[in-house]
Nucleic acid binder design. Structure first.
Lengths: 186, 186
DNA sequence: CAGATCATGTAACTGGTTACATGATTCA
DNA sequence: TGAATCATGTAACCAGTTACATGATCTG
């Protein structure tokens, strides 16, 4: 998947400028892109070239011109085709697993410290996630069903971090159990 | 993180050729890389240039020469530094969430079909994951702790897909509840 | 005879990132 | 006075993918 449909999605909600899209993408919890200029602005040029969006330029006094993009019928059709296309499996990439795979080179205390750091990292990420969702920028709430869908999307993010956190805690507990008996020997 | 440490990790276990590493990476459940030639072979050249590994060339009759790479002390130190470095948060990228966010444009049956396809996709992925783990290529089992660490790493993958699956099922159930009452009206 | 396995390597491309550049306005 | 907000855009780079190229040997 590319950022194209994330942008088309927002434009299917309402007309927006590149600057707005950039912020919406950067602030979103479930969209995996940083929302950097290069990506957003060049994608908009491409979508316009392909006639999936139209532009309207508003010249403003003492501020750069604002280009408001709107989705076209062709754009709406393209978005719809993508939405009903076969979903991909979620991509899990967790570099900590790779660290852990070779972490037997560490001493007990070092390993506990490493897992502790990961636990803390995930805790922090979960807080950020919840906070981001709490004050999510205005999102479409056109129908009860749409509100529900967005709720479930956000729920997915929270649950993923929660599952990760409980795994990390279990890992730490088990590692402590593995190392303690020998220390407690008479 | 880059593939460098995944390669150094395997080499910290035992000497291997690029061809072996490529397969180990491709077959691994928790390493997120495809294990394509370009990446593996060029990384090995780089690691060698940086003196993190040494090479030994075995000329074989009627087969291309085999280059066996071994980790150096410098390589082991570099790997260790990375292992104890602050872990990153796991990266979740799920394009289905983006599809779902704009799926209110679909009709009840279409939406149910979409979520059903996702559920099936995750089910299949979970099966593949379990199967891959069941016949994982020989992995280091140097200590009981290392065996435990690898078990937990694999567990992490399985649990992530299980969590995803239960989320998808709940989503589908709730969507059915949302749409049925109106249909059941007299 | 086609296709997998062994074993190396390169070319072209996509997708994404950081950082730079401009320039007015508002706020602490 | 320095930083943030508004608003556009480009350059250079890194990571990763597919596909190509070679060529013997083994298996169905």
């Amino acid at each position: 998947m590319s950022i194209d449909f994330a942008i088309l999605g927002f434009l299917s909600w309402r007309p927006l400028a590149g600057y707005d899209l950039k912020k919406l993408i950067a602030d979103s919890e479930f969209l995996p892109w940083s929302g950097n200029n290069n990506q957003v602005y060049t994608t908009l040029v491409k979508l316009h070239r392909d006639e999936l969006v139209t532009v309207e330029v508003q010249h403003q006094e003492s501020l750069p011109a604002r280009k408001t993009y709107s989705i076209t019928e062709k754009g709406r059709a393209s978005l719809r085709t993508w939405i009903i296309s076969a979903p991909d499996t979620p991509q899990l990439r967790n570099s900590f697993l790779c660290q852990l795979a070779w972490a037997d080179a560490l001493q007990t205390a070092e390993l506990d410290d490493l897992v502790g750091k990961y636990e803390h990292e995930v805790e922090m990420r979960l807080l950020v996630c919840r906070e981001k969702i709490r004050r999510e920028p205005p999102a479409p709430n056109r129908t009860a069903r749409e509100t529900f869908l967005w709720k479930m999307v956000h729920d997915n993010c929270v649950r993923a971090y929660e599952a990760e956190l409980s795994w990390a805690r279990e890992l730490r507990r088990e590692l402590a159990r593995l190392s303690k008996p020998s220390e407690a020997a008479p």
